[in-house]
Every structure is written in C-alpha cells, then in structure tokens.
C-alpha cells in the first residue's frame, strides 16, 4: 500500500527542514546544510524550493508558483499541481492573494508584504563557485569574509567588457556580512530583495543547502563606487499592458526576426490590463 503524507514528506523530515530554516533565518545569507531528500521531480527542477514549501505549507495557505515570472510555464504548472495533489491546498496566480510564493528566476513585480513568504529555487547556492569550485575552500572564504576575489572578478569584467558582465545571479552582500547568491534572478530583481517585508527562503536540493533573508534585512548588490550596480531590462514597452517599467520577455513573432516585448510577470500584466479595462468602463459611464 503506497500512501503519501500531507505535502509528501513525513513530519520528521519536514521538522528537520524547519529547524535548518530557523538557523538560516538566524544567520542571514548563511548556507545551512540539510538532509535533502529525493523528490518526485528531478534535481535542478526546483527540489530545494519544493522541500522548503513542503516544510512550511499548512492547510490554510494559498500557494502561487512561478517560473520565469509566469504561472503558466510548464515547470510552474507541474509544481503547483504537485502541491494541489499532495496537500489539497488552494493555488492561486494572484500575487496579492498568495501566502507562499515559490519562484524560479524572478521576484514578482508587485511588492510583497509581511504576511507573505517567498521561496526561491536555487541551482547553485555557493556564490563563489565559479571562482572556487572546491566547496570546503569556499566555505572557509565565507568564514573569514574573504571576498576579495569576487571584487577582482567584477573588476576584471569592467576592464574586459567595460561593465560588469553578470546579467543574472549577481552576488549580493546580506546584512553586511555574508556574500549570497540571489539565485538566477535577473539583476533587475536584485534591488527588490533589499529590506523586503516578506521572509525570503532559499532551497538548493541537489547541493543540500538552505538559506534565508529575514524581513527588512539589508541586501546590497556588489558594485564599485565609480561603477555602481546596474539593474538592466530590455528597453521596451509591454505589447499587452504598456508597462515601461516591468521586466520584459522578448518574443519573436515571425521568421523575419520581428520581435515584441511582453511582461515576464504574467499576473502583473493581467492585473494592469484588468485595471485599464475597469478605468475605461468607469470613464465611459
């Protein structure tokens, strides 16, 4: 007889994950090892985020799952349906209505509140991995706050390319102490992490690490005084809602390479369209 517990994992495992999360909250940005389990979705597809969500979700929660900012992408749909199946909890696409938002590669455009938790899926929790592939050596660098090599890397980018070349997963300093990977969100989203009212939890299943940024914690993107951090976005306007400030996806619409830009955050885009229609109706009356 095969039966699954509420939210798939057994209660002891979930408690173990919550304990690791408490430690993570106590040391903002610090990578806490945890006994990651095999989840029924492949490693690299969000197993860390899924375990965090499974550990904190309760009957009364409302879950939103996004991938690339969108609720309708295949991976987000698969994860949301997994939680509906394993918890019976209601899922939503509305950012404002969700109590837990699990995300891959984006932070919603709409500002999050103290009543919300955002769970990031993290492929590579170690921000120094491209510079130091040996994890024990990297861990020592964190212990000693030895982050000079990361600044050297950014400096080398500037001398080679005239600018910092990390467009996503740009490293951040948390609470002035710990260098942290923000997960592969575009640099555009980095500023949203700073002093965010919502609790931010990060899960890396394959690498067996959890970390967290408590509400209202300072999060600074690494930069230089004379080369300040530059959060980039495509210079365009959303073809649906007309937003000039949201993060945009580039869509190729014919074989001549004609392109359009659309909001990556589908809920934000839909909300703006609804709002515009409502105003048009009111204006008409």
């Amino acid at each position: 007889m095969i039966a699954y517990n509420f939210a798939y994992l057994d209660e002891q495992t979930k408690r173990g994950i919550r304990r690791a999360l408490l430690k993570a909250v106590a040391i903002p940005g610090w990578q806490v090892p945890f006994a990651s389990r095999e989840m029924p979705l492949p490693y690299g597809w969000g197993t860390g985020g899924i375990q965090v969500t499974a550990a904190i979700i309760g009957q009364d929660d409302r879950l939103k799952v996004i991938d690339q900012g969108a609720d309708d992408t295949t991976n987000a749909v698969a994860i949301a349906s997994f939680f509906r199946r394993m918890t019976g909890v209601e899922t939503t696409t509305r950012t404002a209505e969700a109590t837990i938002i699990q995300t891959r590669h984006r932070i919603p455009e709409q500002a999050l509140t103290e009543d919300q938790v955002i769970v990031y899926q993290v492929p590579q929790p170690e921000p120094l991995w491209k510079l130091i592939p040996e994890r024990p050596v990297a861990r020592r660098a964190h212990a000693l706050s030895d982050y000079g090599m990361m600044y050297v890397k950014l400096y080398e980018d500037i001398t080679r390319f005239g600018r910092v070349s990390s467009a996503y997963d740009h490293p951040v300093m948390v609470n002035g102490r710990v260098l942290m990977s923000p997960s592969p969100i575009p640099a555009f989203d980095n500023p949203k992490m700073d002093a965010m009212p919502a609790l931010q939890l990060f899960g890396a299943g394959r690498e067996r690490r959890l970390y967290a940024v408590p509400p209202y914690t300072p999060v600074r993107s690494l930069d230089f005084t004379d080369h300040p951090f530059h959060p980039g976005r495509a210079d365009g306007t959303c073809a649906f809602c007309g937003s000039t400030s949201s993060y945009l996806d580039e869509i190729i619409i014919d074989d001549h390479g004609t392109r359009r830009f659309l909001c990556s955050d589908t809920d934000y885009c839909a909300g703006r369209i609804e709002e515009a229609e409502r105003r048009a109706e009111e204006g008409g009356q």
Binding site: Y4, L41, Q68, A70, S81, R85, D249, I251, I252, I253
Partner: peptide, 21 residues
C-alpha cells in the same frame, strides 16, 4: 525564448511528470 516560430512542442516527454508510483 518564451515563444519561437513553430512553437514549443513537448512531444512524448516525461519531463513534467511527478515521479510517484
């Protein structure tokens, strides 16, 4: 690219299946 000419086509894949018995 989110969308490409000719569309994204999953085909016969187990990619998005839940690995549950």
């Amino acid at each position: 690219f989110k969308d490409v000419l000719g569309g994204q086509r999953l085909g016969p894949t187990a990619d998005y299946s839940h690995r549950l018995f």
